[in-house]
């Protein structure tokens, strides 16, 4: 019983933590570029990033299989070169969580960066600071509330990820059975006791993480 609860919790937090870390870094870079640069095909980047938010998770999962499966576009190259197959591993669950939570990060953070008055950046330029320094020490700190909101949303989305993960990583006990998937399969198998336990833990973890973030944000003046 302990193993049936403990493993899903650990693997879920591990997947969500790694995916959120990548989402936070890449998402912030993408958001900065979308908010501050004009370039050809900007709309396309915006559409591609946002797409998983509007597609059914099963479709996202299916597209990931097409890309990452042994006969997929990237999956085949990877398999031919290294012999590694991504599907049905916890790593591919990280990719699935990344893809579905990136739009939440990018939408929130882009809005937060766009809301930073450009005069602050211009002031930094006139004081001799390059764009990268300005972004790191002026723009992003001033957008930090929005960035944190994006990170929290992305983490929550990753913890709750179900459809795409089930498609690409399956439900392999001891390997890819995340909380959301374990709850579904426990309920399907009539093991209501286990389902109840998992639900209570998942709700508690979610509430805790939200409460901690709210406290943290409240302490920030700006």
């Amino acid at each position: 019983m302990l193993e049936q609860v403990w493993f899903p919790l650990v693997i879920t937090l591990k997947i969500a933590a790694i995916s959120t870390l990548i989402v936070a870094i890449l998402g912030t870079i993408i958001s900065y570029i979308l908010a501050r640069r004009e370039f050809m095909g900007k709309w396309l980047v915006d559409v591609l990033v946002t797409l998983p938010m509007v597609l059914p998770p099963t479709v996202t999962g299916y597209l990931l299989i097409v890309l990452l499966g042994k006969n997929g576009i990237f999956g085949k190259v990877l398999f031919d070169l290294t012999g590694i197959s991504l599907l049905f591993t916890w790593q591919v669950a990280v990719i699935a969580a990344f893809v579905v939570s990136l739009p939440l990060m990018v939408k929130t953070t882009t809005a937060a960066i766009e809301a930073v008055d450009r005069d602050f950046e211009y002031a930094a330029f006139t004081l001799g600071r390059k764009e990268l320094e300005t972004a790191l020490f002026i723009t992003l700190p001033l957008a930090k509330k929005g960035i944190l909101a994006g990170i929290v949303l992305s983490f929550a989305r990753a913890v709750g990820e179900f459809g795409a993960t089930l498609m690409v990583a399956g439900n392999i006990p001891g390997r890819t059975n995340t909380m959301a998937i374990s709850i579904y399969s426990a309920f399907q198998g009539g093991n209501n006791e286990l389902a109840n336990m998992l639900v209570i833990i998942l709700v508690t973890v979610s509430l805790l993480s939200m409460a901690i973030t709210a406290r943290l944000v409240n302490r920030w003046k700006i």
């Binding site: 008055d117 005069d119 211009y122 330029f125 006139t126 001799g128 390059k130 002026i138 001033l142």
Partner: peptide, 18 residues
């Protein structure tokens, strides 16, 4: 801009609030 060695005071001051 960075190499023009100029001082610029903005209408809204643009002091860094953080």
């Amino acid at each position: 801009v960075q190499q023009r060695s100029l001082g610029y005071v903005f209408q809204n001051y643009a002091l860094f609030p953080h």
